[in-house]
Amino acid sequence: MADRKKALVLINRKAGMGKAGNEVMQLVEKLGAKGYEPIVYPIIPGTELTSEKLVAEYDTEAELIVCSGGDGTLNHVMNAMMNMEKRPLLAYIPAGSTNDFARGLGIPSGHLAAAEIAVEGEPFSYDVGKMNDHYFNYVAAFGAFSKVSYATDQELKNVLGYAAYVISAIAELPQNIGYNCHMKIETDDLTEEGDYIFGAVCNSASVGGMKLLENADVQQDDGKMELILIRAPKNIGEINLILTALAVGDVNSNFITFRQVNKVTFYSDENTSWTIDGEYGGDARTTEIEVIDKAITIMTGKKG
């Protein structure tokens, strides 16, 4: 057993539909058959059993880290990995309510199929975003609907899944349409200023289950992420134009700014709340985001 590679398996049973870890024995068997020594821990926030502490404990020892949970759980694991002296392979068994990130990587939502990918999949090195002092896998966003994912009650998400996000978004529609934030945005080839109802830096075509960038050529390993800004509407007619553009994925609308960026800075007149990978990301007036090229290698269903 001494020559076996260590696989650290972290399970968040409270994520998404509460099904993380249901097939843990099958996963352990697959890892064992592949030559790994599985080390399994539950993630329990507020205790010694957090992603950050466990990942740090196995720095330089684990050659594979398996995360079973939602996108928020994966965010914590990835952030801890970015601080490791030696970053191992990462595998993800999605158990959240939307699983945007997994979908883009060809990781299935079925636990047994995802466990198969974790052991037998193709390694793929993807770009990680850094927002001020925190990292994200696939999105940092502000404005309308950005807080729906982290503000939606966990019990509601457990029962209804993605429908819970839709219900929450509809309930907040009046105040979201009235929301606007005055910002100045700077990138290498763009400087613009205005009032915005939404802004995001994405590494996924799907955000919160909504395929905002379905028609865009989103590559997760090109050293860039997609910047999308939606200007605040002045009347009901402009609201309808914005909704239509979003419905069909028209990023060339006059109300939408779309760019590929490797670095962007947001300056706002007041503290602005951000969400990172579906969780609360803090408030800031100045927000710097940069792309770290191919920072993490994950097991995926991608071929080639």
Rank of each mutant, 00 (worst) to 15 (best):
E52R: 09
D71E: 02
N99I: 06
A56V: 03
V28K: 10
L105N: 04
Y150R: 01
P42C: 02
G278V: 04
I44Q: 09
G16K: 01
T187D: 02
A232R: 11
S168Y: 05
Y179R: 15
F124A: 04
A102V: 00
I117S: 06
G106R: 03
M82G: 02
A200Y: 09
D195H: 14
V291Q: 04
A295F: 11
S206T: 15
V55Q: 01
A151H: 08
N83E: 11
H76K: 09
R4M: 13
A7M: 08
N254V: 00
I44D: 08
M17Q: 13
Y165S: 02
S68P: 04
G46I: 02
L64E: 04
G69C: 01
D59P: 06
H111K: 00
E122F: 14
Y162N: 08
G104N: 07
T272C: 13
M183A: 15
F101P: 02
L212I: 14
F142R: 06
G199T: 13
V9G: 00
S97H: 05
V40R: 08
A2G: 08
G110H: 13
S268A: 15
I239H: 05
G178S: 15
N83F: 11
I177R: 09
M1C: 05
R87V: 14
M25N: 10
V166D: 01
S125G: 01
E122P: 00
I93R: 00
V40D: 01
N83W: 05
A7Y: 03
N176Q: 15
D250E: 09
G304Y: 08
V159R: 15
G143L: 07
E37G: 00
I65D: 03
